[in-house]
Write a protein that binds this DNA or RNA. Structure first.
Lengths: 231, 231
DNA sequence: GCCTAGAGTCTACGGTGTAGATGCATTCGG
DNA sequence: CCGAATGCATCTACACCGTAGACTCTAGGC
């Protein structure tokens, strides 16, 4: 009882438990480190046994994205929809920074599955944000457009920020300089000149600024009753 | 000579040729269909011989993204920067629709490679758009911010649109209805109600609308000399 | 004619996802 | 209390993967 780990290996697992250690594996060693055999040995179980909790590897990946998205709290009945959208944006950003290795999953998996057939957990944010917007007074049609603009902006920002994200900030500048120095000066003058600016990128501030612009635009469209902008 | 295909297999290949048929393979059969062996047999060559043109599989993928991005024409000296940005946006959208299977690559590869070490071809759009903006009068600092907003919006939109994209529009409605019907009504009322709206999503119009909003915001900031919005 | 260098080929190794057979333990029917 | 059945865990095996290293073959220089 002192060690509820994998040592007494006869404990019965469940899907969530499997997904959780799969997530740990991805977080610590990257996506391609996640194989059935590797996961099996992390759980001290036969790899084949895992098929009891995930139909196949793809389903495992879907489960991970679902698990991660469940970390995101949304309160669709909050009357202050702007504050809510702003908080969700920051939360999602932090979530992406916490699990950078699963961001490719977040972004990629939906591309290969028609909307209606996706894991329910991944549709929850969409549903709830639609609810939030409709509650706030948007017509359902417009709510969808607003969601697209919001979601598009968010994912765009996350991709932006993660592309320039490197764990050790010390190393950041070094690597950046190193890499940019490699660029042929005559073909990439602008990029090289902007190296220092690239190096100190404040993702949180940039996200917040962008969200402010978006929200003010949306609020105006809500009160004047015009159609919402595209995303 | 009548068939410059793979039949007389003694012709010497080059990297571009290899990448091009790799791209064809990905376009027609998906990303996971691209293996060294498969590609080798598509070129009627020994799979090992391909390592002459790509250091490894990752390099092959990088090459494909580079090849695809090269389809994008940018004229950094065009004085009408707004028209230019609008055209590029539409071109990139079409490019994504033309090669939906490589979009995951476009989006994912940069996440695993520090900016400075990326294939030069993938940095060209960044460099040239920075040039365009600086030429237009933005301070280099602001140009970077503007680029991020622009790029983030674009990629966000593409991800949005591709998630709802299905080849056969006939099937589209069917699948969508089918899928959404599967959703538990009490948990997903909004999503189910919006099914018809989801079905006819005009990506081009939505992109154009969004770009207009973005550009007008940017133009204003350019003339008033304020800082650019975040992305 | 021979030697060399390089391109093309083959084999082999350690990994992968997963189908199917097999072993095992537990529970149920009599 | 015993046998059968039922479901879970495990094992083996197959087809595929990326790629290191050895080998063969060819073309060109002397």
């Amino acid at each position: 009882m002192s060690a509820p780990q994998e040592t007494d290996s006869r404990r019965r697992l469940n899907r969530e438990e499997v997904l959780r250690t799969a997530l740990e594996l991805v977080d610590s060693e990257g996506l391609e480190a996640l194989s059935m055999r590797r996961l099996g040995q992390a759980l001290d179980r036969d790899p084949m046994g895992l098929y009891r909790y995930a139909a196949n590897r793809a389903d495992l990946l879907d489960g991970i994205t679902e698990l991660v998205l469940n970390e995101l709290a949304i309160f669709p009945t909050d009357p202050d929809w702007q504050a809510q959208l702003r908080r969700i944006a920051h939360d999602l950003r932090l979530l992406a920074l916490r699990h950078p290795n699963v961001v490719p999953l977040l972004v990629t998996r939906p591309l290969s599955t028609p909307l209606g057939l996706r894991p329910l957990g991944t549709l929850r944010p969409l549903e709830q944000i639609l609810g939030l917007l409709i509650e706030a007074g948007f017509a359902p049609n417009d709510a969808l457009h607003v969601y697209r603009a919001y979601y598009g902006f968010l994912y765009g920002h996350i991709l932006n920020e993660l592309q320039e994200y490197i764990v050790d900030p010390e190393e950041n500048v070094a690597l950046l300089r190193l890499g940019l120095h490699r660029l042929p000066a005559r073909d990439f003058p602008n990029l090289r000149e902007l190296a220092p600016v690239l190096a100190d990128y404040d993702g949180e501030a940039e996200l917040d600024e962008g969200i402010s612009i978006l929200l003010s635009g949306l609020a105006e469209r809500l009160t004047t009753g015009k159609e919402a902008p595209a995303g």
